[in-house]
Design a protein around this nucleic acid. Structure first.
Length: 333
DNA sequence: CCTGGGTTTCCTGCTT
DNA sequence: CAAGCAGGAAACCCAG
């Protein structure tokens, strides 16, 4: 594996070319110039077998304040220009868009995006629409923003530029649904209403250009009147929930291979391979060095009652996602 | 300050 | 015997 974490990348680049890093940290540089610098760094890369795509330094310090937890500890997609994303980072970006907009996993066919950042950046709006339907517009718009602004504005990923109209007409039903499905709050500062996957699949998405969006007079504002501050976020005190953390490991096996594996992908059955390592990773995420699998598993067992997990009798270290766990299916319908 | 959600910690007893 | 499971109880943290 060519896993190189951001800290390693920074030190690597410092060794290779201090000036490159310094240049990249210059906030006055435009993304285009940063790309040129990166390309230069790529030409002077350490050895030809190293994968340049894994050696990108931060391309904007602005991202450092962005609390994006969908990719947890490695080089994060938002730290580098989309042009240099790996396939995995493309998927992370897609996942983040799903999370922040509370979209359902089946709204974006990940298999259509088994491509790297370079390929992604070359795609036209039409190609995005072909690949991802109505969600393609969202992807395209967001990518353009990333390509040319590279800002991690608190709302740039989110719904201020998306109108979602559903067929769900009974407000009481919607309220009921929201009460029953509070679980999938990713904690990313999502500003959209929670959407049932089935509801969303019938949804219409229409796009407006963020830069042309009047701040207070649009339908969008009426439909999605949730600035990050005003949004009444469901409780998620410490970022990603444990079950989401577990799910993300399962969905990103290349990131942390050999920790957890699917036993039955379609049924959502999975098994801990390195239980203590997962616990330590979870503890690291929570700044809790004393986390153990025993404690983690207690938290896991609490999910049974909430039907986020189902019991798997007689099998050690085996769990199964329940009906309230979302985002783990390959094709959620 | 209070409350509730989501853990975290500790524990006992049981099973593999 | 160790490791894991089950679940009660209480504490803790944090956002609303």
């Amino acid at each position: 594996m060519h896993e190189i974490h951001s800290a390693n990348i920074a030190s690597l680049l410092l060794q290779v070319c201090d000036t490159t890093v310094c240049c990249l940290r210059d906030p006055t540089l435009t993304p285009v110039v940063r790309i040129m610098i990166l390309e230069g760094a790529g030409r002077m890369s350490i050895n030809s077998s190293s994968n340049l795509l894994h050696q990108q330094p931060s391309w904007t310090d602005g991202y450092s304040t962005c609390n994006v937890s969908s990719s947890f500890y490695g080089t994060q997609w938002h730290e580098i220009h989309p042009q240099y994303w790996t396939k995995f980072q493309v998927w992370e970006w897609l996942q983040h868009l799903l999370d922040t907009n509370q979209l359902d996993a089946n709204c974006i066919p990940f298999q259509e995006f088994d491509i790297n950042g370079e390929h992604l950046c070359s795609m036209s709006l039409q190609e995005f629409t072909q690949a991802a339907g109505t969600a393609g517009q969202l992807l395209y718009s967001n990518l353009q923003h990333l390509k040319w602004n590279g800002q991690c504005g608190s709302d740039m990923y989110q719904s201020h530029n998306v109108i979602v109209k559903t067929e769900q007409t009974d407000p009481s039903l919607m309220v009921s649904w929201k009460e029953d499905n509070y679980l999938y709050d990713s904690g990313y500062g999502s500003t959209v209403e929670l959407l049932d996957s089935k509801t969303f699949c019938r949804a219409q998405i229409s796009m407006t250009t963020p830069s042309h969006q009047p701040p207070d007079s649009s339908d969008v504002k009426k439909t999605q009147d949730h600035t990050p501050k005003s949004h009444t976020k469901k409780h998620n005190p410490r970022g990603t929930h444990l079950w989401e953390f577990i799910r993300d490991i399962l969905l990103n096996p290349e990131k942390y291979p050999g920790l957890i594996k699917w036993e039955d992908r379609s049924e959502g059955v999975f098994r801990f391979l390195k239980s203590e390592a997962v616990a330590q990773l979870w503890g690291k995420k929570k700044n809790n060095s004393s986390m153990t699998y025993e404690k983690l598993s207690r938290a896991m067992r609490y999910y049974y009652k909430r039907e986020i997990l189902e019991r798997v009798d007689g099998r050690r270290l085996v769990y199964k996602f329940g009906k309230n766990a979302r985002g783990w299916r390959e094709n959620e319908n």
